[in-house]
């Protein structure tokens, strides 16, 4: 049922996007207002990660650095107070239950990039008592830092540890302030937003752009011609904790 609706919307959206054209971002205003609902409904942002490519350049942290910089992510030395949007987690921790005594050497103890999965069925959204976090039509699990009351229920609900809380004032802990993007205040939860502010300008997420190995591919799942779709067609991919029914939209090529 869902697939039928999706396919239909995909086709409808494609034509809308084609009409709107790619070069009209400047004039997006008028056209955008009309095309936005259709295009929004036919967009499902997702990411495909190739961990093998990611491992090529040892110790590379380009994506993490780029993300932290454009989003004013604070640097807390104390691990308990850490704020993380995108980070590297050992394979066994990122994919709990997938490890075995003979886990391939290519994977064992190897760092895997993790961040918000922008689930199709996000538990964090379900539990939020103020709608400070919600799922947009294009699938992005968004945060409203103005509304968050800091109850941290979403952190208890997220099975991926993707959310961070500002235990202390983050401002003094930001290495280089970028005035284009706000900082956060103490007492609110934050996480990756798929760079929605960059998507709005027609740019790719900062981590994708920064990766020297092109290990991160971002795109629209509802567009059958997109690179993410072709990667998913051609490779076997896994997702984190699929058994929980959250439908993560970050895919890992194995």
């Amino acid at each position: 049922m869902t697939i039928h609706r999706r396919t239909f919307l995909g086709v409808a959206g494609l034509s809308a996007v084609a009409l709107a054209g790619k070069s009209t971002i400047g004039a997006l205003a008028k056209a955008g207002e009309e095309a936005a609902p259709a295009a929004g409904a036919a967009t499902r942002w997702a990411m495909v990660i190739d961990p093998q490519r990611c491992l090529r350049k040892e110790g590379c942290k380009d994506c993490i650095g780029a993300c932290d910089k454009v989003h004013n992510v604070p640097l807390f030395k104390d691990k308990d107070h850490e704020v993380k949007w995108i980070w590297k987690e050992p394979f066994e921790n990122a994919f709990t239950g997938e490890e075995n005594p003979y886990t391939a050497e290519a994977l064992k103890d190897k760092p895997v990039l993790v961040f918000c999965n922008h689930c199709d069925n996000p538990p964090c959204v379900r539990v939020c008592p103020t709608k400070a976090t919600w799922k947009r039509e294009d699938g992005i699990v968004m945060m409203d830092w103005h509304r968050c009351i800091g109850c941290r229920y979403c952190m208890a609900a997220c099975p991926y540890g993707s959310r961070s809380f500002n235990w202390l004032d983050p401002r003094p802990r930001i290495p280089a302030l970028d005035p284009e993007f706000p900082t956060r205040t103490k007492g609110v939860v934050e996480k990756c937003t798929f760079c929605e502010e960059r998507l709005a300008k027609g740019e790719q997420p900062a981590c994708v752009e920064a990766c020297p190995e092109k290990a991160l591919v971002f795109g629209n799942l509802d567009d059958p011609a997109s690179e993410v779709r072709s990667l998913l067609r051609e490779h076997f991919t896994i997702r984190r904790k699929p058994e929980l029914g959250t439908q993560p939209e970050i895919y890992y090529i194995v």
Binding site: N72, W145, L177, D178, P179, P182, T183, R184, T185
Partner: peptide, 10 residues
Amino acid sequence: WDCHIDPKLV
């Protein structure tokens, strides 16, 4: 201003 930054300040 707790979150939004005055560019001059930077």
